[in-house]
Computed example of a mutant assay.
Amino acid sequence: MNRPHDPASPATPPVAPAPYPAPTTRARLRVEIAIVLGLSLGASAVYSVLSIVNRLTQQTALSQQTATLNSPLSSREFFDLAYQVLGVAVDLVPVLLVAFLLWREERPHLGRLGVDFSRAGRDTLGGVGLALAIGIPGIGLYLVGKALDLTVTVVPTNLGEHWWTVPVLLLSALRAGVTEEVIVVAYLFARLRDLGWRTWPIIVTAALLRGSYHLYQGFGAFVGNVVMGVAFGWLYVRFGRVLPLVVAHVLMDAAVFVGYPWAATTFPTLFGLPS
């Protein structure tokens, strides 16, 4: 026979809530970084190192070799456009991955990546100024590198003259700016801080990574991008905002991609193909 419930008797203890997940371990963070870089610019760095070894073991001087940044992907115009747009979209997936990994509930949701649009106007103006400060000396370094046979002849584009050529080149510039600054600066800085790294080792490591995936363009490009990486890294640490870096990078690449046909025609000795 069931006994009546006694109000004075202690209630049945509630089921204990499931424990929170354990904090991310250092080993797990290292694996995460390796996966993110392996899907993005770390893989580019490996290919770039292999490329410069290939170039150096050829009989042709570096300055007489070429590296084309935006090439046709199909002889049929519609499919070329489709492949170009698809390539940009696929290359931005690792950016979505790091945004997912560092998303937080409170606003700004992407604060750990230095993404905050509350001062977008000021950040954009800062990016314009930074593009001028970095871009103009960068052109000079490229020309010096070619003269010293340390840099290949970079051909920013050999896409045909289509109605979509300029928009695709601008998308390509956007891809480079967003991918490099969000992953190499914002994401990598956040995760290396989580691992306990100090500021300057983070800045130098990120700058060397930036230089390494540009090695396929020669040693002048490596040095120039390392210097740019140090400057960008210091600015990011100083202000904690990635948008000015993205704006500067996009503007510099857009100017080079879109302005190349004019530059190669106007100054063929400096920017044209090797004779």
Rank of each mutant, 00 (worst) to 15 (best):
F257Q: 06
Q65P: 02
W262T: 08
G135T: 10
V230P: 01
V155M: 00
Y260C: 01
R3D: 02
V152Y: 13
L86S: 14
A45W: 11
D91V: 09
P17Y: 05
V204E: 13
S48A: 12
T179Y: 01
R112Y: 02
T60Q: 15
T266L: 10
P14M: 03
G145N: 10
L143N: 06
F222Q: 09
R241I: 01
T153Y: 00
L29E: 06
P72N: 07
S44M: 04
K146M: 13
T25I: 13
R26W: 02
V128T: 05
A231Q: 10
A176P: 04
I33P: 00
I33Q: 09
L97G: 08
V155H: 01
V95T: 08
L215W: 09
V31Y: 15
S71P: 13
R3T: 03
P14V: 07
L251V: 01
V230E: 15
L37Q: 15
R119G: 07
D91F: 15
G114I: 07
A8K: 02
V95G: 01
A67P: 09
P94V: 01
T151Q: 13
D253E: 03
V155N: 05
P13R: 06
T199D: 11
S212P: 10
T66K: 06
V98E: 01
G42W: 05
P4M: 10
T157H: 03
A89T: 14
L215F: 10
A147V: 03
T12S: 11
A206Q: 05
V185R: 15
V178L: 00
W164I: 13
L171N: 04
F257M: 02
L125G: 10
W197Q: 06
F232S: 08
E32D: 11
L141I: 12
L150N: 04
A120F: 07
H214M: 14
A22T: 00
P108W: 02
R3S: 10
E106Y: 02
D149A: 02
W200F: 00
F78Y: 12
R55H: 09
V246F: 08
T60K: 09
T66S: 15
L102R: 00
F79A: 05
G177S: 03
S48L: 15
L188H: 14
G129L: 10
L102A: 00
V98P: 00
L273E: 15
A16D: 14
W262P: 01
L37K: 07
L86P: 08
G218H: 01
L170R: 08
T68S: 14
A255W: 05
T266V: 06
M1I: 09
A221G: 04
V53M: 13
D6I: 07
A43S: 15
G211I: 07
G129T: 04
D116E: 12
A82N: 10
E32C: 12
V93P: 02
P268E: 07
L171E: 00
L169A: 13
L170A: 05
G240H: 11
T199I: 04
V258T: 08
V152S: 07
V250P: 12
R112P: 11
L56C: 15
N54I: 04
L81Q: 14
T179A: 00
P19W: 06
L86I: 07
I203F: 12
L39D: 06
I33K: 14
Y213M: 13
I33V: 08
A11E: 05
V88D: 10
R238D: 12
L235Y: 07
I33A: 09
A186C: 12
I136E: 04
A8Q: 11
F79L: 14
P201Q: 00
P13M: 14
P4S: 09
A255L: 14
F100T: 11
R76G: 06
P4K: 07
